[in-house]
Design a protein around this nucleic acid. Structure first.
Lengths: 200, 200
DNA sequence: GTCTATACTTTGATAGAC
DNA sequence: GTCTATCAAAGTATAGAC
């Protein structure tokens, strides 16, 4: 009973709480749209704590959030794919599950780093690199699964890039239109591309 | 010679100059990342002019820029497609041309409304609707061309959604990685999807 | 390590002279 | 319709007590 329920809102230490809160705000409002005052308010943390844990300020916090959220989203999707009986079903479940989550969260919970990636692409080189590394990690992970399904390495990588491209593009149209039409269309094309590669 | 070279930087009236400048800034830095002071500075316009032409402030300016830039980009891509001998070549030219432009502009000139669309999707309902209308216009225009190529209406629309999804998604990965790999992979999948639909 | 108070800058927006 | 001056609020960041 030495543990005290200091922070009612979320579990974990102050640093983790700041990271999780920032990730949530980034997904909704993007990098420039998220203020540090809002971060500490939502994380129930004192302002000074932020600069204690992230002496590099908003940029350091942003970098850690991008890598952390990127890795977590990778694990999430990889789990869905690996739970399916085969790779085609895994891709189908990925797009179908993404559509479900979007509907259930009022079209908020899409890719956690996409908005930030576009915002920083031409304005913040360190953060741009962070997003590039996350996407590269996803591509490598997806390509490995396609290779395991019998597709040769170059085709597996190209297919991985195309699938992730379809998912990211569908998130843009889905969030703008508040429909899952793009995820359905993208999922169909994705499955067709995988089946074609498997036959080759 | 009654015309005086009042503004050295760009052609057109003050309002048009503000619209063009804002569109350029939105593409690079997004909506929240673009300040109105930077807009008037780059447009070589006095600050008061902005609120004279856009009494609704940043939101009204944003809405007009989204619709204007969206329509211009539509005309640009439609021109590329219609200049090609057939629809497959048109799609190939679209993805190839987009890759060329990205390389030539240091990965800045991608979709003019994509960053803004993600930023406002869950934070600014009027602007979210503006982006949704632009995407819908693109989908309708692309679907009409697929129908003209002999694809039935439902399939043409689904194909249009998928192609635009591929383009938007490729822009995200391309700008983040500063490579055109995603545009190449997306273009290949896009062409395959069109060819499949044409055979059906 | 926690927390408060504050410094400094930039933001969107307005008023009013011309 | 142009332009300057200015406002209140929010932005990031820092200092220093505890």
């Amino acid at each position: 009973m030495t543990e005290s329920p200091a922070r009612p809102t979320k579990a974990g230490g102050t640093k983790e709480r700041i990271l999780d809160t920032t990730a949530e705000l980034f997904r909704r409002y993007g990098y420039t749209g998220t203020g540090l005052k809002q971060v500490v308010a939502d994380a129930n943390a004192p302002f000074g704590s932020l600069y204690h844990h992230f002496p590099g300020g908003k940029q350091q916090l942003g970098g850690e959030v991008i890598r952390r959220a990127g890795a977590m989203y990778y694990e999430l999707v990889a789990g869905v794919i690996d739970a399916a009986p085969d790779i085609v079903a895994g891709i189908r479940d990925t797009f179908g599950g993404a559509a479900e989550v979007l509907r259930a969260t009022d079209y908020v919970d899409a890719c956690p780093i996409e908005t930030v990636a576009l915002e920083v692409a031409s304005s913040n080189e360190p953060l741009r690199q962070a997003t590039a590394e996350v996407f590269e990690q996803w591509i490598t992970g997806a390509a490995a699964r396609f290779e395991a399904a019998g597709i040769d390495a170059p085709a597996a990588r190209e297919l991985a890039v195309a699938i992730i491209t379809l998912l990211e593009g569908a998130f843009v149209l889905a969030r703008a239109s508040r429909t899952t039409e793009a995820l359905d269309a993208a999922g169909a094309v994705a499955i067709a591309a995988v089946e074609t590669a498997l036959r080759a």
